[in-house]
Simulated assay, not measured.
Amino acid sequence: MDTNTRQFIEHVERDATRNYPFTEAHQDRLETGPGYPWDEVRLDEMDLQSAQDLMLSENLRVQGDYSVVVTDPQWIQHLTVGDWWRTTAYPTHADRLLAGEATTDS
Rank of each mutant, 00 (worst) to 15 (best):
P37R: 02
V41N: 02
P73S: 10
P34T: 03
L98P: 04
Q77T: 09
P34L: 04
E40K: 10
T103Q: 13
Y20P: 00
A99I: 09
D105A: 11
D105I: 11
D44N: 12
S106N: 13
D39K: 09
G100R: 07
D2L: 01
D44H: 14
N19V: 01
Y36N: 04
W84K: 06
R86K: 12
E45N: 10
G35A: 12
E40G: 12
W38F: 14
R86P: 06
Y20M: 13
I76K: 04
T17I: 13
D53T: 02
I9S: 02
D65G: 10
G82I: 01
T103F: 07
Y90V: 15
S106E: 12
D2K: 01
P73W: 03
G82Y: 03
M46I: 10
R29F: 04
V41D: 02
R6H: 06
D65L: 12
N59L: 12
V68F: 04
R61F: 02
R61K: 14
Y66I: 08
W84T: 02
P73E: 10
G33W: 00
R18N: 10
T17L: 11
D2N: 12
Q77R: 07
Y20W: 15
T92M: 03
E24C: 07
Y90I: 15
T104V: 12
L60C: 04
A94L: 03
T103H: 11
T71A: 08
V69G: 04
E10Y: 05
H26T: 01
L56G: 01
V69M: 10
Y36T: 01
N4P: 05
T87S: 14
L60P: 00
V68Y: 03
R6P: 00
D65V: 11
D105C: 06
A89R: 09
E58V: 07
Q74F: 07
H78C: 10
T5G: 05
T17S: 11
T103D: 15
W75I: 04
D65R: 06
Y36F: 14
Q74A: 11
D53V: 01
R96W: 06
